[in-house]
Design a protein around this nucleic acid. Structure first.
Lengths: 146, 146
DNA sequence: GCTTGACTTCAAGTTGACTTGAAGTTGCAT
DNA sequence: ATGCAACTTCAAGTCAACTTGAAGTCAAGC
């Protein structure tokens, strides 16, 4: 397995060297050698960084991301937890899709205020994370036209 | 249009009163009256809050969310920007779906390290935000088995 | 052999998004 | 009329995730 200097890793991954050091400090990644003073990393750290950025964009904290792998970078979560997280991600993906539909609708809809457009309201309810929130919206918006 | 006290709004929306005041301070929402000292909000602020929480979970900052609406809560972005954002959301939704597929795969796959499992690598590349990142992964991982 | 540039450490600073604390005010129930 | 919970303001505190600064080290090219 080839080793790569921190500068190379930074350029390849788009992650600042200061961030790489920070990630190492908090135990998220590991350098395995030095070239002089310079940290060197295994090439597959790049894969790890891709996973980290993915996890971040999915809303996981660095701590959560770190806890998903043990020190040999092998997944350290029980299956049930993994599929729970997968379910959660699926829900989030659907919410994003709903939000994107809303934006597209807003770009088209001629209603004076979208908060009063029935179709917009429907999309909004579809985008709500919980049943409770959907109900509240139902009551608060419909029939409260000034 | 009925007005609601901050406490009610907080309970209905699940957003802390301190957060509501903070949102107001930064101009994200508006109270329209007082009941004694107490802030009162229009009921449709609830809708706004649903949008805000949605936007947050999609990774927008409060500032970005604020900039999407003008002071009358009407969308203040040109159509092209709206559909760009929608596209971005769709991409993000697909990435999340890919990440969820990865998690499900990890729950099943018997490979010793997932970073070495070809199917996992394929999923990872599918999950990458940019073509550039995909290429880098391609080079860094494949054929570098220790 | 000297400069240069990319690194090093360590501490301190920054930003976004809130929360907390202290001290005061109000509406409502008893 | 009194007590109290739920508010008020304003300043300060917190937390995650980094970034910046100062002072030093190293190796590569001129």
């Amino acid at each position: 397995m080839n080793l790569i200097d921190i500068g190379i890793l930074s350029k390849a991954s788009g992650v600042a060297t200061s961030t790489l050091r920070y990630y190492e400090e908090i135990g998220l990644i590991r350098s395995v050698a030095r070239n002089g003073l310079r940290r060197q990393y295994r090439e597959d750290t790049l894969v790890q960084l891709a996973l980290i950025s993915l996890g971040k964009s999915a809303g996981f904290s660095l701590e959560e991301i770190g806890s998903m792998f043990d020190k040999d970078r092998k997944p350290s979560l029980p299956r049930s937890t993994l599929s729970e997280r997968a379910d959660e991600l699926d829900r989030q993906a659907r919410r994003l899709k709903a939000l994107s539909n809303m934006l597209r609708h807003v770009a088209e809809c001629p209603a004076p205020s979208h908060l009063e457009c029935p179709r917009f309201q429907k999309l909004l309810r579809a985008a709500c994370p919980t049943e409770a929130a959907r109900e509240v919206l139902q009551h608060s918006v419909i029939g409260s036209e000034a």
